[in-house]
Design a protein around this nucleic acid. Structure first.
Lengths: 80, 80
DNA sequence: ATAAAATGACAAATATATATTGCATTTTGT
DNA sequence: ACAAAATGCAATATATATTTGTCATTTTAT
């Protein structure tokens, strides 16, 4: 089996983090996870669990859609 | 380490699935996952990955917030 | 009441998220 | 330019998500 390589950086997460003036390490501590985990999620190198996504949302006061939504592969942006 | 027991059923997911007139097995096939995985997520017995949540959203034409949002532990419902 | 389909439950095996440690590199402030 | 802080990167170890297979129970339709 080929390992799934997630190539998409999570810019929205990084922006929400710096808005709150937190380093990766500080966010990690608040969320209860290691610094590396936060770094890897931001750099798009893996696939967090739903619970972890939710904890991050709670700390950064955002919703899942705001931090983690991505449009489906073939799909273009939805019209507002 | 104690295994995390997720006790919260995902009713919203089940409702979206039946709206689309899909069995767990049919949804599983469309999503590219096993029938058990869908069943376990609906019954709240574990913690899917973000990618899996997104694939389910795409098939059921819902957003992450619509299917997977849960308010933070202490928090009451947000006023609309 | 009956059969078929759908779901639940369980165990063992596999894949992968996450932790931990250590060091290299980059960024930031002075 | 310098030091400190922040981030990146890699390897190994562990926890747990997911698969596969099988059987029991419930639901649905006839």
């Amino acid at each position: 089996m080929m390992r799934q390589v997630m190539t998409m950086k999570n810019i929205k997460l990084k922006m929400a983090r710096v808005e709150h003036d937190l380093s990766q390490a500080e966010l990690a501590e608040k969320v209860g996870v290691s610094r590396q985990t936060i770094g890897l999620i931001e750099s798009g190198k893996y696939n967090p669990s739903l619970n972890l996504c939710l904890k991050i949302c709670y700390v950064l006061d955002k919703t899942l859609d705001e931090l983690f939504w991505r449009d489906p592969p073939g799909q273009a942006e939805k019209a507002e």
